[in-house]
Design a protein around this nucleic acid. Structure first.
Length: 273
DNA sequence: CATTTACCCTGATCGC
DNA sequence: TGCGATCAGGGTAAAT
């Protein structure tokens, strides 16, 4: 499940391969991945365009193209974008893009939740998730004050609120659980009940959890691969996620797995209050 | 606005 | 061993 560190790792791995390349041909094997415009229009508009830059916003990958168009990709649960010398023979290959150097960008997505858009830059606001996206947690725009104000308004569990992309961009289940552990906060706590001090700890913890994920090139449990098809290493350094029943690395207490807001949630009942 | 629920989907795993 | 049920889970739309 690609979250901010995974999408950023993909962006960084693809950037040197894609910059300046022109997309020669587009193959759509599963039309419903393409949300806007229709699959045919998408292919026609994309073919022949040169890639100017590769950006990321939350979990969205933004491919800036010549002619003021942006190709937007969201990997959702199991999407993979893999640059290779050939079109990959894979049963879950959903789209493939032939580049002007003969190499291919392969979009593989087992569960088919992934989505793509191709829009003129001035119409990117039509992508709701992008338009309402909260601040980037690794930028200066992410402030403790605003984070505190946002949390104060919410009666839901703090874990649920961390997953809300309008509050802060890019957190998913893994890094939300890890941040709450680093902050020593129980994921079930009502968001508004957190003191200013606790919110400051959580703010720092979000940044630390994401930076660690980035340093380790993402977390691979099953599906995640970077743009070169390489696994991440962050799964070896997690404190709570996917560690239910195992001893807490800090205190030895058994990590507990529960459900919070319908999501599997792992935490240490001794370290997180 | 905040919140809740349904929905999209396939493969792994669980329970009997 | 077989097989149906359940789980995994991001984010949007629609309903409340």
């Amino acid at each position: 499940m690609p979250e901010l560190p995974e999408v950023e790792t993909i962006r960084r791995s693809l950037e040197p391969k894609l910059l300046g390349r022109t997309i020669e041909k587009v193959y759509v094997f599963l039309e419903r991945i393409v949300k806007k415009p229709g699959a045919g229009e998408f292919s026609r508009l994309l073919a022949g365009r040169k890639i100017i830059s590769l950006d990321r916003r939350g979990k969205y990958l933004l491919v800036r193209l010549e002619g003021d168009y942006t190709w937007v990709v969201h990997l959702r649960m199991t999407g993979q974008l893999i640059y290779a010398p050939e079109k990959l023979k894979h049963r879950h290959l959903r789209l493939a893009f032939l580049l002007d150097n003969g190499h291919w960008l392969n979009f593989i997505d087992m569960r088919t939740f992934g989505s793509m858009y191709l829009l003129p830059d001035d119409r990117l606001g039509e992508i709701r998730g992008l338009a309402t996206m909260g601040p980037e947690p690794l930028s200066d725009r992410f402030s403790v004050e605003e984070f505190y104000r946002r949390l104060q308004k919410r009666k839901r569990a703090v874990k649920t609120v961390l997953l809300d992309q309008t509050v802060v961009a890019g957190l998913g289940n893994i890094y939300a659980d890890e941040a709450l552990f680093l902050a020593g906060i129980d994921p079930r706590r009502e968001a508004a009940s957190l003191s200013k001090t606790e919110v400051e700890r959580l703010y720092q913890a979000v940044v630390r959890a994401l930076r660690q994920g980035l340093r380790n090139r993402g977390t691979t449990f099953r599906d995640y691969l970077d743009g070169a098809g390489e696994k991440g290493k962050n799964q070896y350094y997690l404190n709570v996620y996917h560690r239910g029943g195992k001893p807490c690395r800090r205190c030895g207490t058994g990590i507990v797995k529960i459900r919070v807001g319908g999501r599997g949630t792992s935490f240490c009942p001794n370290c997180q209050k």
